[in-house]
Structure formats: structure tokens, C-alpha cells
């Protein structure tokens, strides 16, 4: 009765952050795909229908909010967790305006817990 692990799609331009989050999430039993830039995610043709997106806010070129906007326009409805080195009220407001589930401030001591809550709330 083993269910396929939930896929986490992670976009962050910092390699150390990306790899560390992959390591800790895999240890928690998630399957993780990494994308160093928003463009890499946008170029992905095989997006899963279940799982969750974890997107860094501050990235050069396209920021996390803009990436979410573009994904929504494409009909991607996966839940999104936005992560940022700094979470202000205005960032939170704008994120919720785009239907982002939660905004988390780094250093992210319990990302796995937040992801589980998102996936449990899902359909």
C-alpha cells in the first residue's frame, strides 16, 4: 500500500540553500526536484499534479511572486509556500493576494512541518 511520495518543487537561486533543503526534506520522506532559476521551472513540461511548490522570493530577474503569477496564468494550481530571508507585512499581503498558502522566513527550522500541513489541507 505504499503511496508515491509527494513531490516538492523547490526554486531558490542559492545552491547551498537548495541542496540543504533537498537533503532535509528527503530525510523526511519527500521527493524533491530542484530548480536554480524561475526560468528552469517555467521550462519544465512535466509538472506533477500533486505535491507542493517551495519558491524563494528574492531572486534576480523574476522574483518569487512574479513566478507564481506566471504559473497561475498557466493554470498551475499546486499549493505554494513562499520562503524569504525577510518577511514583511506587505510581502505577506501580496503573497496572500496571489493565493500563496504561507510565507516562511528563513532559516526555516521546520519546512517539512509546513509542507505537511499544506498537503494535509489539500483536496
Amino acid at each position: 500500500m505504499s503511496k508515491a511520495p509527494d513531490v516538492i518543487l523547490l526554486v531558490d537561486d542559492d545552491a547551498a540553500v537548495r541542496n540543504a533543503l533537498k537533503f532535509s526534506l528527503e530525510m523526511e520522506g519527500f521527493s524533491v526536484r530542484l530548480y536554480p532559476t524561475p526560468e528552469d521551472l517555467l521550462a519544465e513540461h512535466d509538472l506533477p499534479t500533486a505535491g507542493c511548490l517551495v519558491i524563494d522570493y528574492r531572486m534576480p530577474e523574476i522574483d518569487g511572486l512574479e513566478l507564481v503569477e506566471r504559473l497561475r496564468r498557466r493554470g498551475v494550481t499546486l499549493p505554494v509556500l513562499l520562503i524569504s530571508g525577510r518577511v514583511t507585512r506587505s510581502l505577506r499581503d501580496r503573497a496572500f493576494g496571489l493565493g500563496i498558502t504561507d510565507v516562511l522566513e528563513k532559516p526555516l527550522s521546520d519546512l517539512a512541518g509546513s509542507i505537511r500541513r499544506v498537503l494535509d489541507d489539500g483536496p
Binding site: 542559492d14 547551498a16 540553500v17 540543504a20 532535509s24 526534506l25 530525510m27 532559516p107 526555516l108 517539512a112
Partner: peptide
Amino acid sequence: TAISNYLKG
């Protein structure tokens, strides 16, 4: 973030 997540893993 990297440190605390490597440690958590």
C-alpha cells in the same frame, strides 16, 4: 538556512 537544514536532515 543551509546549516540548520543539513543538521535537521
